[in-house]
Design a protein around this nucleic acid. Structure first.
Length: 278
DNA sequence: TTCCAGTATT
DNA sequence: AATACTGGAA
């Protein structure tokens, strides 16, 4: 869909006028360091701003540079990550730091295709870095921005990703991509709830919700939590958690096996289970 | 129990 | 393109 110049400018004015009075001051908006911005984006993927704030400060204090993070062990990173959930993403973050040091001379790539090769960076996060760290005039679309566009340009009717992206591209004001996207983020988090009341049905198609099949995610988190405090004999550990969970030792062993495959725990030759030290 | 909002995988 | 994965909040 091709938008008229006026339509574009009117919408830009709507957003920027709103933003003047409602702008949030956030620590990751006071830096253009792609490493710090990456940390904030990964945290914000999974957690609300209020809970990210203290953890972000802690993380950049403990690992101030990409080099510091690359030198840390997975165990170090997982301990700082405590309380954030999505532990695998903490490992991605560390592996990305290692790759930046080893494969990119310590500097983050500035093109999307290269950023996308880093573990845990999909299209959204890659573009967030290009916009927020390098101020490139490209568009980025997260679910908030998608909903804003859906509401203002398609009367609330869901559109294919490519159509949303096409509109998003036209809306980016030249030379103001950084401010534009920050403004949209704030606008979305504040105004979308008013536009999109909870009773309105989502985007037309209902997502096939997975029936609750006693997923293991709760137990995975518990295992990692326990290992943050120390290491244990695997056999005893398995039996102890088995009792604690009210599950069979085989079940716990299965959880541990998958955590091992995910690189979240390791078991030494002598049968000690711990967070990976490298 | 479901939802959220991304990435990875098939 | 569709599905799985993730874990705290709602």
């Amino acid at each position: 869909m091709k938008l008229s110049r006026k339509r574009i400018e009117d919408f830009q004015k709507l957003i920027f006028d709103w933003w003047e009075k409602n702008r949030r001051d956030l620590p990751w908006r006071r830096t253009y360091d792609p490493y710090h911005i990456l940390i904030s984006e990964v945290m914000l993927q999974q957690t609300q701003v209020s809970r990210v704030l203290p953890k972000y400060r802690e993380f950049v204090t403990v690992f101030p540079t990409v080099m510091e993070l690359a030198k840390a062990t997975p165990a170090d990173v997982l301990r700082v990550w405590r309380g954030m959930g999505y532990n695998r993403r903490a490992l991605y973050l560390r592996k990305t730091a290692v790759s930046v040091i080893h494969d990119h001379k310590g500097r983050f790539p500035k093109i999307e295709s290269e950023l996308r090769k880093l573990p845990g960076l999909g299209m959204y996060t890659a573009r967030a870095l290009l916009v927020f760290a390098y101020k490139q005039d490209i568009s980025m679309v997260d679910t908030n921005i998608r909903q804003i566009i859906t509401h203002y340009f398609f009367g609330g009717k869901a559109q294919p990703t490519i159509v949303i992206a096409g509109v998003a591209d036209q809306l980016v004001p030249k030379g103001k991509s950084w401010a534009w996207h920050q403004a949209l983020m704030d606008f979305g988090s504040s105004e979308l709830k008013k536009i999109h009341p909870p009773w309105a049905d989502r985007n037309g198609k209902k997502k096939t919700s997975i029936p609750f099949k006693e997923t293991n995610r709760y137990f995975r988190g518990k295992v990692i939590d326990r290992l943050r405090d120390g290491s244990y004999n695997e056999k005893l550990f398995t039996v102890e958690l088995s009792g604690l969970f009210g599950k069979s030792p085989q079940f716990v062993a299965g959880i541990i096996e998958r955590l091992k495959n995910d690189g979240l725990v390791c078991i030494s030759k002598s049968g000690i289970i711990r967070l990976p030290e490298r």
